[in-house]
């Protein structure tokens, strides 16, 4: 129960941070990605985050366990290969077209315009198609039994 309260509050704080930072403006995000008229301010979002979490993660992960849960759930994947790059490129193309990544898109869906609903709906569908497809492939082709091993934190 306490864990669920933290989850809500973390979600609220996360999206307020996105809004204060300017990440909920897709045209600003596209400006950050546009080297012809570069708007560097969003680099400072990453700066602020890494400033805080670079230090806090280190302190938190010194603990044997989290405060209200038995163990930390950290990503297992560490491999770097052409597939990782190709897959991250898919995301980059979608990000560049829209100016939306998943967090700001969900926050922006509080104003349900045709545009935000189209993006978030398609994004959820893409995630489900990928996850469902992978599960099916593992079961039927690769013969790897369920449940799936934990994937990266993403």
């Amino acid at each position: 129960m306490k864990v669920l309260l933290v989850a809500v509050l973390a979600g609220v704080l996360f999206s307020i941070g996105l809004g204060v930072a300017g990440m909920t403006h897709p045209d600003k995000v596209i400006g950050f990605l546009d080297f012809a008229r570069w708007d560097p301010s969003l680099m400072f979002v990453m700066g602020g985050v890494v400033l805080v979490d670079g230090v806090l993660f280190r302190l938190i992960l010194r603990r044997p366990s989290p405060l209200w849960a038995p163990a930390f759930t950290l990503p297992g994947a560490t491999g770097i290969d052409a597939r990782l790059i190709a897959r991250a490129m898919l995301f980059g193309v979608g990000w560049g077209i829209s100016g939306f990544c998943p967090g700001p898109a969900i926050t922006s869906a509080v104003i349900p315009t045709r545009e935000t609903i189209a993006f978030v709906g398609a994004m959820f569908s893409g995630m489900a198609i990928h996850d469902g497809g992978r599960a099916l492939w593992r079961r039927s082709v690769a013969g790897i039994p369920e449940p799936l091993p934990p994937e990266a934190c993403g």
């Binding site: 704080l13 996360f14 307020i16 204060v20 930072a21 602020g48 938190i60 993403g154």
Partner: peptide, 29 residues
Amino acid sequence: LAPTLGGVLIGLAVAGLLLFTGKLAGISG
């Protein structure tokens, strides 16, 4: 200033979730 402050708030949200629940707040995950 606003982007940095926003980044700090996001950082605190992610760190808080990790400290109390052990979960990582990657949105797509």
